[in-house]
């Protein structure tokens, strides 16, 4: 095994991939989070995340290090989520579960910010609106939106992950943000 610095995942990706156990430990939370936010089903997210790393392991010899390990793993995760979302039956259950998942998750994200209960209620409402809006976005718009605003990826990295041009990412992102802004409302 080659020891690698896990704090800098973008350097020496071919070395990083050699210690696959460390790769899983380091990248699991991010991949799980993206999959979970995309499909909103914990059990399915866990399974898909496992599948993601399994595929990565099986294909690790084909990994040339052209992109970072994070980009490579996210590409696999996006494909898995896309396949998952195309299953109509699963989509039905996803919608059924959607509200229950959202309401249970939002409160913790706001509490403890030192703001008034009224402000917390407003913030909770707005976050719920974002959740609902992302649920209605197209698959690509939602993926771009989550990668940008949850995973903090820049436009070029999103383009690499999704296999599209930077211009296409901008278009999807603009539409997604505009839809979300319409849902949350403005100040004026």
């Amino acid at each position: 095994m080659i020891a690698v610095q896990m704090d800098s995942p973008d350097t020496r990706p071919e070395a990083e991939i050699s210690d696959f156990d460390a790769v899983v430990r380091h990248h699991w939370p991010r991949i799980f989070r993206f999959v979970l936010a995309s499909i909103r089903d914990r059990d399915a997210a866990e399974t898909l995340t496992q599948d993601c790393f399994l595929r990565a392991y099986q294909g690790r010899h084909r990994f040339r290090g052209d992109a970072s390990v994070r980009t490579w793993l996210m590409q696999i995760a996006i494909n898995l989520v896309r396949d998952f979302a195309r299953n109509r039956r699963i989509r039905f259950w996803q919608r059924v579960k959607e509200m229950a998942v959202d309401c249970g998750s939002l409160k913790d994200g706001i509490a403890g910010c030192g703001v008034s209960p009224e402000a917390q209620a407003v913030a909770k409402e707005q976050i719920e609106a974002v959740w609902r809006a992302t649920g209605n976005l197209s698959e690509r718009q939602r993926t771009v939106f989550l990668l940008r605003f949850v995973e903090d990826m820049d436009l070029i990295e999103i383009a690499n992950v999704m296999g599209v041009t930077e211009g296409a990412v901008k278009v999807h992102l603009f539409r997604a943000v505009h839809t979300v802004r319409e849902r949350i409302g403005g100040m004026r």
């Binding site: 989070r33 979970l36 998750s105 913790d108 994200g109 974002v130 979300v180």
Partner: peptide
């Protein structure tokens, strides 16, 4: 207007991350 939307999106990110950490 921009700051308001950015704040909501940051709160959204925090809620997703906390939710994910809780379920992971």
């Amino acid at each position: 207007e921009v700051e308001h939307a950015q704040n909501v999106l940051m709160a959204f990110r925090s809620s997703v991350r906390e939710w994910s950490d809780k379920l992971d």
